[in-house]
Amino acid sequence: MAAAFAVGIYMALITSPADFKQGESVRIMYIHVPSAWMALLTYTIIAVASGVSIIWRHPLADLAAKSAAPVGLAFTGLALITGSLWGKPMWGDWWVWDARLTSVLVLFFLYLGYIAIWQAIEDQNQASRAAAILALVGFVNVPIIKFSVEWWSTLHQPASVIRLDGPTIDGSMLVPLLVMVLAFKAYFITVLLWRMKAELVARKLQVLRLKKAQGA
């Protein structure tokens, strides 16, 4: 993971060329785009894990979904912040109600709701199933929300706005981008495993404490 990041950053900041239209600012893309992709991918993973947990009641699926959520929230927040830092030089404003940014913002709220319901229900079994239902409902809504936001932005958009994802990506930019995506994925898997392990240990701890309380 560290190696992928090192190579990715080296390529992104040093060897990759500046874009002819966006100049050096295109370098933000190498962290913005992976963050945004991972934000969506993580939500998909949570939804799939929730489906598995509802159908097969597999406890590891619950743990995976729960553990992935804060990581996904972090990716979503980073996509918003880097998007804003990229938007300032490109659009002249810190925030533009562009369809993509707006959808990512909504995704951020979906993550918040998902995490909130985990925290609001004390009983872990109930929380996991309620959260799973919510994740699936949210997942069904993601394409609808995305479509509606795009619809809304075409109604309000002045035509001449540079879009954040240039029309075509040159090969010299694609390689560093892919390396960074790989690094983000490796990061996600590593942290996900740590957090799942922690959740497992937390449950074990609960059992131990319960045993001790009953024994005493």
Binding site: G23, S25, R27, L78, I81, T82, L85, W86, V191, W194
Partner: peptide
């Protein structure tokens, strides 16, 4: 970076502070 450094460097710093922070928090918790 052609004047874009003001935007590029903070975004890289923020990304890595958040990612490393989350990683450390997860490790510590575990």
């Amino acid at each position: 970076m052609d004047g874009y450094g003001v935007f590029i460097w903070p975004s890289y710093v923020i990304v890595f502070v958040v990612l490393i922070g989350l990683g450390i928090q997860s490790r510590k918790w575990l």
